[in-house]
Nucleic acid binder design. Structure first.
Length: 334
DNA sequence: CGGTTTTGACCCGCGC
DNA sequence: GCGCGGGTCAAAACCG
């Protein structure tokens, strides 16, 4: 299943089609624009046209909201299907075959791959410190597991999750012929998070990534996206940008903090500095943290409501409209 | 040249 | 105490 083919998380709210076209074809010829309105009609008609335009924008907003709702519903449906599939695999995979105490103490085998906490008393020591300290200082950090389906031909151990990782080791373990790769978070030097990535023994197209610890820094995309304005709509980050074709609002639905599962191909062809590009959506499906449809719907409504109420959005909208007007009219007429 | 990857060696906990 | 196995180190190779 390739989610990218049916779900696009890029919501292009291009304002271009908002020009007066079908609404009042009789009143004004196709060539007329706002400048003509301003010159040839009374102020009242101009106001009426603007109101009409506003209504049109509102209607379009509603339509987009509905589209977004449908998109999220499709997303949920597909996700539940994948989760069913993955849970079947997980039941086998997490059967208690592990001997090591540390594994069992981390509760990974209970099929619940939510962020599991063991007290999370994150020590202030860095990795350099911990590497020199005796190992009895066990990592008491959050542990989560993540499943990522890749192409069968993809032999890499790359899991895109928005962070930058540095591989520091690889080992072939006993119960799995596929090597396990060890990564440290390299985006922040003091970040204690480690990641283990190994292909599933049952289904080698599935990558199993185990995360230990919590990041003490934002994702790289959070920090480097300064070129475009970023704002959070509810809990969903998005960004707006003004380009030649008008303002574009992009909803970034990839920044889920929960363990995720990708049911389809991705993650190949990226060198291991990887992971930083969330615009290439991961087509990710939460494995354990399953938000209910009600929550999803609430988020959608919140996003739509925020879009219509957010001054940034309205400002961008106003800028787009005025830009359009300026673009269509000779300079100096305003 | 600096950052990343590779890979053999080493460390250490655990079971016997 | 010994061996096994997972986790980490660190030097060399690689890469942009």
């Amino acid at each position: 299943m390739d989610y990218s083919s049916c779900i696009s998380t890029s919501l292009d709210l291009n304002i271009r089609p908002l020009r007066v076209r079908d609404e009042a074809p009789k009143r004004e010829p196709q060539e007329s624009n706002f400048m003509d309105l301003g010159l040839n009609t009374s102020a009242k008609e101009e106001t009426g046209a603007l109101v009409e335009e506003l209504n049109r924008v509102s209607a379009e907003n509603k339509k987009l909201t509905q589209m977004l709702t449908v998109m999220c519903e499709n997303y949920n449906t597909l996700r539940s299907q994948v989760m069913d599939y993955m849970s079947k695999n997980a039941e086998k995979e997490f059967s208690p075959s592990k001997k090591r105490k540390s594994d069992s103490s981390n509760n990974i085998g209970d099929n619940n791959v939510n962020m599991l906490t063991n007290g999370a008393s994150e020590s202030s020591s860095t990795d350099e410190d911990s590497s020199k300290k005796p190992r009895e200082e066990k990592i008491t950090a959050k542990i989560s597991r993540l499943y990522v389906r890749t192409e069968a031909s993809d032999t890499g151990l790359i899991v895109k999750d928005g962070y930058q990782w540095r591989k520091y080791g690889q080992k072939v373990t006993r119960d799995n012929p596929c090597p396990r790769a060890y990564f440290k978070c390299s985006f922040a030097p003091s970040c204690p998070v480690k990641k283990k990535v190994q292909r599933s023994a049952e289904d080698q197209a599935v990558l199993v990534a185990t995360y230990e610890g919590e990041h003490n820094h934002p994702t790289q995309t959070d920090e480097t996206s300064g070129s475009s304005r970023c704002m959070a709509i509810g809990s969903v980050p998005c960004s707006t940008s003004l380009n030649s074709s008008g303002p574009t609002i992009t909803l970034d639905l990839t920044k889920s903090k929960s363990p995720i599962v990708s049911p389809s191909n991705n993650n190949n062809n990226n060198n291991t500095s990887n992971n930083s590009n969330n615009s290439d959506i991961n087509k990710i499906i939460p494995k354990a943290k399953t938000e209910s449809p009600e929550i999803q719907r609430f988020l959608v409504e919140q996003m739509a409501s925020s879009l219509t109420k957010d001054p940034s959005f309205t400002a961008a909208l106003a800028a787009a409209i005025s830009g359009k007007i300026f673009h269509q009219s000779p300079p100096g007429k305003w």
